[in-house]
Amino acid sequence: MIKKQGLAIICGIAALLFGASFDASAQGNPESGQQLSTKGDGSGAPCMACHGPNGEGNAAGAFPYIAGMNEQYLYRQLRAYQTGDRKNAVMSMNIDNFDDQQLQDIAAYYASLDKPASTASNANAELLEQGESLVNIGNWDEYIPPCSSCHGPNNQGVDENFPGIAGQHASYIKQQINGWKNGDRKTDKVQLMEAVAKRLNDEQIEAVSAYLASIPAAE
């Protein structure tokens, strides 16, 4: 119980820290964002080339679905790619010429779209069962909290602070957990995800990724 209460407090502090600097962010224009997403920044590929015509992503390329995600969360990730807080050569190259308002517009456009159906893979039942337990219950003996502790009921996300991860492509979830684990992703100011990821072994990462991909992206 003490561990669970501590994790809840940490998540609350993380939410305050993540949100504090962005409360006054400008709102984006979805119509402008749609145009920008189809033509790109002038030097790279358009968003839809990797994330699909409706923001549904691509499991084979580990490109996440971004349709229906929180606008400010999307904006912050785009900014992180520009500043280097998130490292991905493809993303950085394809958005480096967008100004701040254009990033807001793109975020607003994708936030306005409907989330896709679940992206379930053909994972075996045993792996999915292990993933379900970790995602919904956690493993407190190893101080691994359930994903929903921070990502909200049914892992649908909590405002701009914790993204919805239900129904996300397993390949992308696995990639990002390993990124946190290896210290390659630095957008978590309190290192909460980094700490949790480092406690997960490879099999647990596979299980969590497979199960999250199998559940509905939207309620």
Rank of each mutant, 00 (worst) to 15 (best):
M69E: 13
L16D: 09
D99Q: 08
K39P: 02
N54A: 15
Q77A: 11
G19L: 09
S43K: 11
M91T: 07
Y65N: 15
I106S: 09
G40A: 11
C50R: 06
S32I: 00
M48D: 11
I10K: 05
A60N: 05
Y65T: 07
Y73N: 01
G33Y: 03
Y81W: 15
A108T: 01
I95G: 03
D105L: 09
N58T: 11
A49V: 15
A20E: 11
Q77K: 15
I95R: 03
L74Q: 14
G84T: 02
A80E: 13
Y73C: 00
G44S: 02
A111S: 07
R79C: 12
Q27Y: 04
D96V: 10
Q102A: 14
I66W: 13
N97W: 01
R76T: 15
Y73E: 01
M48Y: 04
Y73P: 00
L103C: 04
I10E: 03
I95C: 14
M91W: 06
A80T: 06
L78A: 12
D105N: 15
S25F: 14
R86L: 06
P53E: 09
V90G: 11
Q82W: 03
G84M: 08
A59S: 10
S37T: 07
K87Q: 15
R86F: 04
A60G: 12
Q72G: 12
G55R: 06
G28H: 05
I95W: 12
D96L: 15
A107L: 01
L36V: 10
V90E: 14
M69P: 09
G52P: 06
L103F: 11
S43Y: 05
A24P: 05
C47H: 07
D96R: 13
K87E: 12
G57I: 13
M93C: 05
L103T: 09
C47F: 07
Y81R: 08
L36C: 01
A20V: 00
N29I: 07
G19Y: 04
M93D: 11
F98T: 07
A111L: 00
C11T: 14
G33C: 05
N97L: 14
A80P: 02
G44M: 09
D96K: 14
K39D: 01
D105P: 09
F18K: 11
L36R: 00
L78R: 10
A59M: 05
A108H: 03
S25P: 01
Y73I: 00
I9R: 01
A80F: 03
D100Q: 12
M48H: 00
I66G: 13
M93P: 02
A107F: 04
Y110P: 04
Q27A: 08
A62F: 05
P64R: 00
K39T: 07
N70P: 07
T38S: 15
I95N: 06
G55A: 06
A24R: 13
N97P: 10
K39W: 02
S92Q: 13
S25K: 13
I13K: 01
Q34M: 14
S32H: 03
Y65V: 00
L7S: 03
T83E: 02
G40P: 10
D41N: 06
N58P: 00
A49T: 12
H51N: 07
I13E: 08
